[in-house]
Simulated assay, not measured.
Amino acid sequence: MDSSPLILLAAGGTGGHLFPAEALGVELIKRGLRVRLATDARALRYSGLFSKDMIDVVPSETVRGRSPWSLATTGIKLVAGTAVAFNLIRRLKPAAVVGFGGYPTLPPLMAARLLGVPGVIHDANAVLGRANRFLSRHVSAIATSLPGVLDRDPRLSEKTVTVGTPMRPAILGAAAINYVPPDTTGAFRLLVVGGSQGARVMSDIVPSAIERLEPALWRRLILTQQVRDEDMTRVRAVYDRLKINAELAPFFTDLPARLASNHLVVSRSGAGTVAELGAIGRPSILVPLPGSIDQDQFANAGVLAKAKGALRIAQADFTSDRLAAEISALAAEPAHLAAMAANARTVGRLDAAERLADLVVKVAGI
């Protein structure tokens, strides 16, 4: 049996949490360490570094409401998950537990605290998430993707290190591809994505925005759009009528390569998306998800917007007329797109996995 130290990674079962965990796992394995993943059942569909024999499913629940019944149900499930995680950690004896946010990280990190195992959390957002905010006082170290996240809390800032967002190998490969701006008469490649679950607003706004473009731009346009199954028929009908060269799908497994091959990206501004746009260096129009308590996507988009690598448009202002105007203006100014790509690249950190691995090894005392 391999006796090298084990690092237990804890992450929610979505790409925004799993991909940084995968990137760190790759780096830790390079250093001769073993890794396992504690997560929720959604991750069993995941097909990256963690094979099913490397995954431990730990029960968890997200806070979905403020009613006493909802809070009690969530609390019971999290306590049950902590008991499962307690037995798991006692059996595996990891040198450290590293969490990547989301409520599924709560049971493993709390069990680690109870057993005296060092804990580290990583947060990719410009605003600390609720689960990580709760865990922040119970771990040995906090890693953030962006600077200044905890500057206003001296008790936490002294154990906080800015490392960036660890990038999986596919993103690092895409980052090696230089941005080539479009010719004003040649093909214009536009990528529209809406996060892991898609975004209905993209199906509502983008087709009618495309319809408002000049016909000359229709002929240049090569459009790739993530469209949910329930919206597919109506979106495809618009593009077929306009004779747009469009590829539509509910999900793209090769998204890093698609990010690299397009001239402009229209997207939500989840932490992973913003980090990947920065790492690869691509211009974007970002539409933050509205209504979240922490307004994390608005803050994330602000990082790229401040660097002049993206346009941030609040969903209330994200109209077909506004989007058509922005696309038309950018398509006519290749030099502006090239400058946005270069500015976005200044936000990216390609060595984040190495930096986070250094922190984990230090905390674990390996």
Rank of each mutant, 00 (worst) to 15 (best):
R200F: 13
G32T: 03
V139Q: 10
P207S: 05
L128H: 10
A332V: 00
H17C: 00
L217A: 13
D151V: 10
R282P: 03
R91T: 09
D204E: 12
P283M: 11
R282S: 08
A299F: 12
V98R: 12
L304M: 13
S67V: 01
L337E: 02
S136H: 10
A141S: 15
N343G: 14
V235T: 06
T233Y: 13
V84L: 03
L242M: 13
I285C: 07
T224Q: 06
P166R: 12
A96V: 04
P182K: 13
H263D: 13
A176W: 03
R130P: 10
H122L: 02
L359V: 12
A237R: 15
L217Y: 10
A246T: 00
A41M: 05
A342M: 05
T74L: 04
V149F: 06
V361R: 12
S51F: 09
G281L: 03
E276C: 13
Y103V: 00
D294P: 10
R64F: 00
T184D: 02
A143W: 07
L37V: 09
G65M: 04
Y103F: 07
A187N: 08
L78H: 05
R189T: 03
Y239S: 05
A199G: 01
A344G: 05
V193T: 01
G164A: 11
S3L: 11
K362V: 00
L37H: 06
G99K: 09
P166E: 01
P283Q: 05
L18I: 08
D153S: 14
P215G: 09
D240Q: 11
M110Y: 12
A325L: 07
R31M: 00
V97I: 07
D151S: 15
P68W: 05
R200A: 14
F252D: 09
R36K: 15
L172N: 04
R234L: 09
D321C: 11
M54K: 15
T14L: 06
A187T: 15
M110P: 04
P94S: 05
L146V: 15
Q295R: 15
T233G: 06
L286A: 09
I244P: 02
A174V: 05
A342C: 08
L221E: 03
L150D: 05
R36S: 10
P104T: 02
D317S: 15
Q197S: 08
S140H: 14
I210P: 00
G195T: 03
L106R: 02
R91V: 05
D2H: 11
Y46M: 08
V227N: 07
V163T: 11
N245M: 06
L350G: 01
A175E: 00
A260Q: 13
R34V: 00
A299G: 07
E214C: 14
I210R: 03
R234I: 07
R189P: 03
D351F: 09
P207Y: 01
N132P: 06
A85G: 01
N262K: 13
G101W: 02
Q315W: 09
I280C: 08
G13A: 06
R355P: 02
A249K: 14
T62R: 13
I76H: 15
L359I: 11
K159H: 06
D151T: 15
I366T: 14
K159G: 08
